[in-house]
Nucleic acid binder design. Structure first.
Length: 573
RNA sequence: CGGGGCGUAGCUCAGCCUGGUAGAGCACACGGUUCGGGACCGUGUGGUCGGAGGUUCAAAUCCUCUCGCCCCGACCA
């Protein structure tokens, strides 16, 4: 392809709305163009990288035994009502009506459709397992899209779904998908980690996320040298040290103390000469079905996802000040578990391990001290609802956990019968018994993976594409288009490279050398062939690598062969 | 949805506080000089200042409403 024909428009400055590096660079390199919040055009250059990733994904999915199909974007409401998600999915589901006032949605994911496809064809254990995938545009009406392709509302996703007659069969497919994902991200040259994850509103019993490690990642993960890794939402800690001894002599019974205007644990702790770890932090939350009260130790933070799961809720948020007042009869900051009625109280195990504690008195400007969990109050539920911190002991080996940030590029789930049961996707087993199929689903963010690759591979000049994702592997750069000899060598070399099947972009523009070099660095072609006046006079051209900036001079006649060698030898990454 | 901020030329921004002729750089067109790391000089094209209403002799500027976008939180591939 010739640059002059390729519809490439680079930007000299960062677009005003770009925040993260991948967004800035992809916009400047002329790869993406924003149409509306979270909705992007993939310009020709960006689309080439997307397509390269798609090709890798297709190869690896095929290797893992998955078969490609394409499902509709627009889906009838009935299917979603059958699965129960029409109501559960909430506002992220973009709902539409057709001219007959029939309800549809733009698919944010395709469990319902694929389940419908399979249930209408598969009736026997003999037809199982089935594994299907597609690469397709999804729409999720995210509350806050941001960071370019990292969190769009409209985005490309590879989604695969598997159907099984046994959990052993599901395990097998799950492992095959995990391997496929590992191969995909390895082939893209990404540094990633697979961690245990919460299943969110997709549902199911077990799931893993694939995280590309990056400072700008939106997710926090914990990792241990022993191999344990988990999203913080899911992460557990091993046995924790107990709270330090209660200072001074212990009160026999809870005593109310006056704590005027002190509403935060650190403030009250300092005022009473106690440590935050001696406190029971009490938070009122509101779920889709009830108000509830969560208790964690004063130096811990609440993990809302764990609490949501413990309560069996689909949505959860901290209650507003007025609602806190209603539940506790006190202003925010003085809530405690003693004497509460009409709400479920969930306590973290660390709270129950406190010998003595201090906590809010549900009365303005008062706290209790000398509270004994289990004696002075009894929670309705004891569950791990604590947010793991860096340095906590690993639940497997006890070594300190490390906290990292990552970009979630893939997520695989064991769904079990979450969709097959309500949607009656069943088969007859060997004994002629009707059974719901056991399902798995496997998502991979295409655009997000490409953006993650940019996050991990760039410098001050621009993108440094890993070879497999580069829009073009090679740029042929004609420094002096107005010098006939240089133009002639460039054209000839371009012809040779094209004939040899090299993925090359030829910068034939009538621009100064500097402009071309800047653009080449910004876009980040892994390999560059520079044809200039001096070189041509001496019978050679220059080949350089974007990643390490190394240059080598080769004879004009050998250039095309040398390029092919470099690409084939894996010297370019 | 809560909190903060921004909408002025294709892009990045100044002007707004203190109302009175709409600006710069880049890009684009033409001419000239330049030509291996985003050249220089000259000339030129391009704007209903996001939209609606109001105040005023006069509004990009002040007020009200509205739409869009960005950042921080809840959601997620």
């Amino acid at each position: 392809m010739r640059f002059s024909q390729a519809f490439i428009y680079t930007l000299r400055e960062n677009p005003q709305d770009a925040e993260v590096i991948s967004h800035k660079l992809m916009a400047r390199a002329g790869m993406i163009d924003k149409l509306a919040a979270g909705i992007y055009t993939y310009l020709p250059l960006g689309w080439r990288s997307i397509e390269k990733l798609c090709a890798i994904v297709r190869e690896e999915m095929a290797r893992a035994g998955s078969v490609e199909l394409a499902m509709p974007c627009v889906q009838p409401a009935e299917l979603w009502q059958e699965s129960g998600r029409w109501f559960a999915y909430g506002k992220e589901l973009l709902r539409l009506k057709d001219r007959h006032d029939r309800e549809f949605c733009f698919g944010p994911t395709h469990e319902e459709v694929i389940t419908d496809v399979v249930r209408r064809r598969v009736n026997s254990y003999r037809q199982l397992p089935v594994n299907l995938f597609q690469i397709q545009t999804k729409f999720r009406d995210e509350i806050r899209p941001r960071f370019g392709l990292m969190r769009g509302r409209e985005f490309l996703m590879k989604d695969a779904y598997s159907f099984h007659g046994s959990y052993e069969s599901l395990d097998e497919a799950y492992r095959a998908m995990e391997q496929a994902y590992r191969r995909i991200f390895e082939r893209c040259g990404l540094s990633f980690t697979a961690v245990e994850a919460d299943t969110g509103n997709i549902g199911g019993s077990e799931s893993h996320e694939f995280m590309v490690l990056a400072e700008t990642g939106e997710d926090a993960v914990v990792a241990c040298t022993c191999g344990y890794g988990a999203n913080v939402e899911k992460a557990e800690a091993g046995p924790l040290p107990r709270a330090p001894q209660w200072p001074g002599h212990a009160p026999e019974n809870p005593q109310a103390v006056h704590t005027p205007g002190l509403t935060s644990v650190p403030e009250v702790a300092a005022f009473l000469g106690l440590l935050p770890a001696h406190f029971i932090k009490t938070m009122v939350v509101e779920t889709d079905k009830e108000f509830a009260v969560a208790l964690v130790r004063g130096d811990d933070e609440l993990n809302e996802v764990k609490l949501k799961n413990a309560l069996g809720a689909t949505h959860l948020q901290l209650a507003s000040a007025e609602k806190v007042q209603k539940v506790t009869k006190a202003t925010v900051g003085f809530a405690g578990p003693l004497g509460l009625s009409g709400v479920r109280v969930v306590a973290d195990p660390e709270v129950m391990r406190l010998n003595l504690a201090a906590t809010g008195a549900n009365r303005d400007d008062f706290h209790w001290v000398g509270v004994v969990p289990g004696r002075d109050f009894t929670p309705d539920l004891i569950a791990d609802i604590r947010l793991v911190r860096g340095g906590d002991p690993c639940p497997r080996c006890g070594k300190p956990l490390e906290m990292k940030r990552g970009i979630e590029v893939g997520h695989i789930f064991k769904l079990g019968t979450k969709y097959s049961k309500p949607m009656r996707c069943t088969y007859l087993d060997e004994k002629g018994q009707e059974q719901p199929m056991i399902m798995g689903c496997y998502g991979l963010g295409i655009g997000r993976t490409v953006a993650a690759a940019v996050e991990q591979n760039h410098d001050e000049e621009g993108i440094i594409w890993p070879l497999p994702l580069a829009p073009y592997a090679v740029e042929l750069l004609n420094v002096n288009p107005d010098v006939p000899a240089v133009a002639e060598v460039s054209e000839r070399l371009y012809g040779e490279l094209v004939a040899a099947g090299v993925d090359v972009l030829y910068d034939d523009r009538d621009e100064r050398g500097g402009v071309k070099f800047k653009d080449a660095d910004l876009i980040g072609f892994p390999l560059r062939v520079v044809v200039g006046k001096k070189g041509v006079e001496q019978g050679h051209v220059e080949i350089s690598l974007r990643r390490d900036k190394s240059r080598r001079t080769v004879g004009i006649a050998e250039a095309s062969g040398r390029v092919r060698e470099l690409l084939a030898q894996g010297e370019v990454r």
